[in-house]
């Protein structure tokens, strides 16, 4: 079987990899590149645990073929903190105890960042609907929504 040779940008860095045509972006991130911060919860786009951005658009990495990212830009949870500086969302998730088991947390953070990049002042309802594709079974969402609203307020200054 011939493998696809893909050249792309991940978290700002040039990356090349080989993949099978069937492999998803999530498969490659995890199994080939060992960027395991993106989680597989369902492999059908129903849980959001593998949320990444593709050219700035929030997507589920399980619903993108790895070969599709040729020439595009991918960002994952591993690209969120800058050096030892956590993104304000990451810090607020900690401050608000917006995680219990933590497996959904990378997906929520990537999704929430995509929201705040577009809308610096979302309402609670906007936050809830934006994040409806990210399942959390531990927290009941309360502290996650609070953390996102608080981050937005802080980032607005």
């Amino acid at each position: 079987m011939t493998r696809e040779h893909i050249t792309t940008t991940i978290n700002g860095d040039p990356v090349e990899f080989l993949c099978d045509a069937e492999q998803t972006l999530l498969d490659v991130l995890r199994d080939e590149l060992r960027l395991t911060g993106s989680k597989e919860g369902c492999a059908s786009g129903d849980c959001g645990a593998c949320s990444v951005t593709l050219d700035g658009r929030l997507v589920c990495a399980c619903l993108v073929l790895a070969a599709e990212v040729e020439g595009h830009e991918v960002t994952t949870i591993e690209g969120m903190a800058v050096g030892d500086q956590l993104h304000p969302l990451q810090q607020k998730f900690l401050d608000h105890a917006a995680l219990q088991c933590g497996v959904c947390t990378p997906g929520f953070l990537v999704a929430a960042k995509a929201l705040l990049d577009r809308n610096s002042n979302p309402t609670e309802t906007e936050v809830r609907f934006w994040l409806a594709g990210n399942l959390c079974r531990c927290t009941g969402y309360d502290k996650i929504v609070r953390a996102v609203l608080d981050t937005a307020a802080e980032m607005r200054g």
Partner: peptide, 9 residues
């Protein structure tokens, strides 16, 4: 159709 993530695609 689906979530924000789905809307991206």
């Amino acid at each position: 159709i689906g979530s924000t993530q789905i809307q991206g695609r």
